[in-house]
Amino acid sequence: MALKATIYKADLNIANMDIHQYGDYQLTLALHPSETIERLMVRILAYARYADDALEFTKDLFETDEPALWEKDLTGQLVKWIEVGCPDEDKVKKASARCKQVAVVAYGNAVAEWYKRNSKLKTLKNAEVWQLSEKTTSEIQQLCKRTMQLQLNVMDGEWTLIGDEHQVVIEWTQLQ
């Protein structure tokens, strides 16, 4: 019998004073048996960076041709394509041709080598690449619970994610 995904729920309140974006989002995420808590929490941060009511989590670990998150317009056309981790550059290039905005939220100790090796990414005009520090991805795991109440405050470029018992300063680096 195959292992089933574990469901996590997060109530995410965002107060981004830098761009005057405020919102409450009720997120439901499935943690695939092969997925880590670190990746689950990075998916939440990716959602927070591009927060929109139309943004959806996908079946990316089950469906290899899907990203971690996407947004479609009312006609079903893809608008945003958001990858988490260090994806194949051909997948990102293909998404770039189909969407207005493509983003990669990369994390882990292999990001620098991955980015250097995938030079085609640098030619994509509608693609952003963000790197989360290893310190951030290590610390955000402490915030993870099956049911989470998270508050994200952004002010003067500083991101702080607050949970019930901990808070983490999110360290982003824009590679592209």
Rank of each mutant, 00 (worst) to 15 (best):
L150D: 01
D60V: 09
A112M: 06
Q167T: 08
L55W: 05
A106I: 02
G108S: 09
D65Y: 11
T147Y: 12
N16T: 01
A127E: 04
L121F: 10
L143Q: 00
C99S: 09
E171Y: 03
P67A: 12
I140D: 00
Q77T: 10
L175E: 09
T137Y: 04
E89R: 03
Y22A: 02
N153T: 10
R98A: 14
Q174M: 12
A110T: 13
I170P: 01
K80E: 07
E165F: 11
G23S: 02
R49G: 04
Q149S: 14
T36I: 07
C99W: 00
L124H: 07
L45C: 06
L29P: 07
A103V: 12
A95M: 06
L27S: 08
E56G: 01
F62C: 04
E89S: 13
A30G: 14
E128T: 10
E171K: 07
A110G: 09
S133Y: 06
H166T: 03
G76W: 10
E35D: 11
H166N: 11
V79T: 10
E35I: 08
L152Q: 05
M148C: 13
A5D: 15
I162E: 13
R49W: 08
I170T: 05
A30P: 07
D156N: 14
G108K: 05
F62D: 09
L150R: 00
D18V: 01
I19V: 14
G108I: 04
L143E: 00
K72C: 13
W130F: 15
L175M: 15
D88S: 09
L31V: 05
L3Y: 09
T6A: 12
C99Y: 00
D156A: 14
D65S: 14
P87W: 09
T160H: 03
K72A: 13
D88P: 02
E38C: 05
E66Q: 11
A30H: 11
L150V: 01
D90K: 11
L3V: 06
Q174I: 07
Q131K: 13
V111M: 09
Y115E: 05
R117C: 08
K72T: 14
E63S: 14
M1R: 12
N118D: 15
D88A: 09
A127T: 13
E35Q: 15
Q131H: 08
G85H: 05
Q21H: 14
E139F: 07
K91D: 13
V129R: 00
L132T: 04
R43N: 05
K59E: 12
Q151T: 07
R49Y: 10
W114T: 01
D24W: 12
V105C: 05
F62E: 10
E35K: 09
Y8F: 15
I44N: 01
K72R: 15
E134R: 08
D65P: 03
L161F: 02
A95C: 10
A51V: 02
Q26L: 13
C144G: 07
Q101P: 00
K116T: 15
Q26M: 12
I37S: 04
A2G: 12
S133V: 08
P87K: 06
R146Q: 13
G85S: 05
A95W: 02
L69Y: 01
L55R: 05
Y50T: 01
V105K: 03
S138F: 11
W130T: 08
N109L: 11
L40F: 00
Y8N: 07
